[in-house]
Each structure stands twice: as C-alpha cells, then as structure tokens.
Design a protein around this nucleic acid. Sequence first.
DNA 1: AAGTGGTCTAGACCACAAG
DNA 2: TTGTGGTCTAGACCACTTT
Lengths: 250, 250
Amino acid sequence: MGTTQLESVPEPKYWHLKTVLSDALDSEFAVGEILPNERELAARFGVARATLRQALEQLELEGRLQRRRGVGTTVAPPRVGVSVGDPAHSWPGINDTADPWRPVGSDEATPPPAVARLLGTEPDRTTHVVRRTRLAHGQPLAAELLYIPDASVPHLSSIDAPGGTARARTLLRELARLELEGQEQAVELGSARAEDAKELDRLPGSPVLIVTTRYYAQGRTAAVAVATYRADTCRLTFGDPSGGMQLLAG
Amino acid sequence: MGTTQLESVPEPKYWHLKTVLSDALDSEFAVGEILPNERELAARFGVARATLRQALEQLELEGRLQRRRGVGTTVAPPRVGVSVGDPAHSWPGINDTADPWRPVGSDEATPPPAVARLLGTEPDRTTHVVRRTRLAHGQPLAAELLYIPDASVPHLSSIDAPGGTARARTLLRELARLELEGQEQAVELGSARAEDAKELDRLPGSPVLIVTTRYYAQGRTAAVAVATYRADTCRLTFGDPSGGMQLLAG
DNA sequence: AAGTGGTCTAGACCACAAG
DNA sequence: TTGTGGTCTAGACCACTTT
C-alpha cells in the first residue's frame, strides 16, 4: 500500500479540525486576538464552511472561542470561577457590599411547574418574582429569576409599583429578615431563553448552566432561584477548603 | 396588509420548530416512544433536514430527546438528580455499600497541567490514576479520573500490576486511610473526549458537565478528581436541607 | 457599503444497529 | 440488507456591526 497509515476508524473531519485549531490557539494566538473569518479558514483547511463551523462550535462550547455576529471570532480568556454554593453570599438580600447581584426589576407571575413543586404551592398560584443580574468585570455572567411566595414577605408594603427596581429592593430587604436554615442546589445544562439571552449578550439557544436554588427558612421553602449562567465563560465553584466539613464529623 | 401579524424580529425556523416539537413532546408522546425519522419529520414540517436537526440538537441538549445512530430518536425521561457535593459520599474509598462508583482500572500518568496546578506538583510529575465509572439503573452517568500523588498513598504495596482493577481498589483503600479535611468543587461545560464518550455510550464531542473536585487531607491537596457527567441525562445536586448551614452561624 | 457570523437548502455518502 | 442518525458539500441569503 502507498499509504503509510490507514485509519481503520477514521475520525470526522471536524473533530480533527478541532484539535488542529485548538493547538493553533495555544501556540499562535493571544487572548482577545481575532481569527481569520470563517470563509477564509474553511478555504485554508480545504473544507466546507459548515464543517469548519462545526469545529468552531465545539471550541466555543469549551470556552476557547467567542463568536460575535458582525464582528468576528476571537480567542476567549480562561473561564472565570464564580462562587455559587456559599449560602452566606447567595442568600438574597444579605447586605454584603460585595454582593455581585444587581436587581433589575420585579413582577408577579405564576412560576413554572417545576418551581411551584419546589415551593409547595398550587401550580396556578402567583408569586413575587425578582429579576437580578450578576456581573463580573462589567460583563454579565448570569440572569436570575427569584420566586418569592407571599408567605415569605408578609410585611410587604404596597407603596412601590411592580416592575420597578425599587420594588425589587423592597422584596429583597423583606426576604432578608428571614433566617436562612438551609439550601439545596442543582446544576443542569440548558439553552438560553430569548429573554435571558438578551441579558447575557448571547444568541437565544446558546448553552447555559442553570442553577436552581431552594432556600429554606421557617421550616418551609422560603424562595426558589433559577439562575442562568453563560456556559462559555463561567466555571461554577462550590464549597471551600476552610469549612463545611462538619458533615463528616456527624 | 393581508397578514394579521408581521414579525418585525422574525425568529429562526429552527427556533420555532423547537417550540412546536417541544409542545408535541409534552402532549402527544410518551417517554421512551420513538419519533418519526429525521427525513420524514423534515418533510412534514417543510424544512431541510439540516434545519430539523438543528431543532433536535437543542432539544437533546435540554434533555428532552435522545438520539442514537442506527436506532432512532426517542423521548427522554426526566433528568436524574445525582448527588455530587456531599463529601461523606464522594470521598473516594469510603466503604459505603451505596457507593455508586465502580473502579474500572488504574494507571500511572502525568496529569493535565490544570490538575498538576491543583495538586501543587511539578507539571511533568506522574501520579497514580484511578479510573472509575458511576452507574444508575444500569446506565453509565459519569466517567472519572482520580489523580493521586505518591505522597497520599505512602504505604502502597507494589504487588498488583498497574492497569488492573485490583490495583485500583488497593489505591482507593490506601487513600481512605487519610482523614478528609475539606473539598472544593467546580462545574463547567465541556465536550466528551473520545475515551469518555465510549464509556458514557455517547459520541465524542457530546456535551458533558465536568466536575473537578479537590480533596484536602493532612493540610495538603491529597487528590484531584475530574468527573465527566452526561449533560443530557444528569442534573447535579449540591448540599442538602438538613445540614451545612453552620457556615452562616460563624 | 462592506464584512462578519447566523440561517437555510438540497442534495450525497458514511457508520452503525437490527432484522 | 435495510433504515437510522452522523458527516459533508457548495452554494444562497439574512442579521448585525463597523466604517
């Protein structure tokens, strides 16, 4: 045979392309640098543009690249670690000066069935909803919907109008009066709803990490937060070395 | 105008298709049921197969569908919640009868740079590597590589040959002699390496949730685990309502 | 106006599982 | 052998950003 090696299990072109590009990113490009456009890259590698795009998609999924319509494809910085599991910081309304969340509005709505189940309310019962955004270095990392049943904020004054951030702050302040007794969290993969995508500066459908947090207070589920993190730029961190190990002692 | 509504911001076909299919899944299909094949679905909706596939891809990403080459597209069951954050269960080697991890082999290798950094070892220093698989209901959920520096298993007998599961069990048993002092975890999105994909019964490149756990013992980082969870079938859970809230008291 | 990535088409062939 | 999903092509047009 003239071929020095025959691939008994030939890997797809886009897969090979991905590794080639990945190596090139490590050695020949700096963070923030802009790559040649897709048509040129495809021509350079001798593949169709769709195939080239399949490789780029995976690299973007892995946080190596960032693509923006009308602009180009750039080399992404390493993912930022965002602390998600620490109750002391995540309990809404705690007035930490380092609170990374910014309230952007409030509303009243019927939560999705999954949330209603966690809250233990009837499926068609409305709750307060506070919308918040989490920023880091000026970039939006996450968009959150915080569902608060009436029972958790009994002393709510009805001065402020729904929809405003003033109302949102009032709700958070009321919620903070409760003493947090525990929390449960879950992380899963999803795709950004149109509304979240806008806030995250991404296209609808782009991959996101959905963090659902169930807050316990007064022996009940006091609130449920559904936070949508950009999967391309975020690495979610849980726990820390100094504490929390009491679990093992018991 | 003859049109009752003009879309000033027309949504992409595949996006609309996705919502239509999603509704159909809720109302007309049962879990495990097999959908019509892609060519027929595309014809039925009057779109190209590639467009139809774009919608299916997103639904699979969201855990609604499962596609298998040569078989077909089926309606996926709800994601299973897998406990990830509880140190009492995740500390390797603890002889819990309910331990969901099954050792499948061991080796000696130089860890990836990111892991070496966590371990505090030189980049080219080899460590023991234990390969484990996590199962639920007979289905593989996760594949893990556990990196253990020599210093963490000083009493290791060199009877067993590397590569075998016997050696893996020995390593885990030795590791369990250490008292766990703390752990740190991170979750991020990735795509399955060829090796992991095989173990997870997925195609290479399919989306996975990568959980990196740093175990502390004896004041050092005693081991680092890199676990690759199927993103389509898994919902990772952290913490629990009964404990862990000591953090707030301090 | 020009250039970028995003969407879409209508084909073709391949790898795999099951009969 | 048949039928499935997976890969790939060579185009076209659209939405968006920048100049």
